[in-house]
């Protein structure tokens, strides 16, 4: 086997683990034994391998400007992700990647940027947000709309506080339900779209979350006059090989692993309306 084998995982060591919510956690990794630095573009994903347990596609959540650290935020949904959740500092995880398409952060410099995230969908958007903030002067207005289930399910609380404190970024967080001790917004994230300011002729929207949420959010954006070609979303499908050979992740003609996960909405608009595609 050569190191060029796209199916062979490369060992990375866990530097740090952080619990985000009851069922999500963040792993900070570095190449094992001084391996080469890891570059990626915001929106791309890796295949993470837990020795003997299996592999799962996980989006990259770290700062694209830092090639010495690889950050993944994951939700426990099965045996493999539970195995990741049990990792401790010093443990080793296999990494293949990065794979897939990226958020159009460079192509859209100069325009207003709207991020819309739902649930764990904030994780794949985080590198794009960090990139935009690191190059803040190159963009117009920057807005983040983030919906979560309850206040306890809100990810990246520290980041959100910091981003909110940036005077030139609007951050709206809303939850589906809450008790009285939550002073933030309650309601669906799509309902925030009509409120936010942006230049519809010069803006880009990047969405990640459950497909239902993205569909409704796109409708609201289109209602406000954003061209479909300026709306981008990240799709989730069953990815096994991540290099376009296994066929599992197809949506119509697209292999989500290599033609996506980030798509322009007009590439998918019709397919999203058809059941079980």
């Amino acid at each position: 086997m050569t190191s060029l084998d796209p199916m062979a995982p490369v060992p990375f060591r866990v530097l740090r683990t952080d619990r985000e919510t009851a069922d999500t956690f963040t792993l900070e990794l570095a190449p094992d034994e001084g391996g080469p630095p890891f570059g990626f573009r915001p929106g791309q994903f890796n295949m993470l391998y837990v020795f003997g347990k299996g592999e799962a596609p996980i989006s990259i959540s770290g700062d694209p400007g830092r090639r010495d650290r690889l950050v993944h935020t994951t939700r426990v949904v099965g045996a493999v992700t539970a195995g990741m959740g049990a990792l401790k500092k010093g443990d080793v995880l296999g990494v293949r990647g990065p794979f897939g398409t990226a958020w159009p952060v460079d192509e859209t410099a100069g325009s207003d940027v709207i991020f819309i995230a739902g649930g764990i969908g904030l994780a794949p958007l985080r590198p794009a947000i960090l990139h935009v903030l690191a190059n803040r002067r190159r963009y117009g207005r920057v807005v983040l709309l983030y919906g979560a289930r309850t206040p306890e399910d809100v990810l990246y609380r520290r980041d959100l506080r910091r981003w909110r404190a940036e005077l030139d970024m609007d951050v709206y967080v809303t939850v589906d339900r809450a008790s009285r001790d939550w002073h933030g917004d309650v309601g669906v994230v799509t309902a925030l779209v009509p409120r936010i300011p942006f230049d519809r002729d010069n803006c880009v929207a990047m969405l990640c979350g459950p497909e239902v949420m993205m569909r409704f959010a796109v409708l609201e954006l289109l209602k406000r006059g954003i061209p479909a070609s300026m709306v981008h979303l990240s799709m989730e499908r069953n990815m096994k090989c991540a290099v376009g050979f296994c066929g599992h992740c197809q949506v119509g003609p697209h292999f989500v692993c290599k033609d996506g996960p980030v798509f322009r909405y007009d590439e998918l608009a019709r397919l999203l309306k058809i059941r079980e595609v």
Binding site: D23, V77, G78, A79, V80, G118, G119, I120, G147, A148, R149, D153, D176, R177, G187, V188, T190, A191, G209, P210, V212, M213, F216
Partner: peptide
């Protein structure tokens, strides 16, 4: 109708843990 749509979306509970339908991994 706006409130009803929002309510329906909330009902879907889209961010919830996976429902016990289909397969689990």
């Amino acid at each position: 109708s706006e409130r009803l749509e929002a309510t329906r979306l909330q009902l879907l509970d889209v961010y919830s843990p996976p429902p016990a339908r289909g397969l689990r991994r």
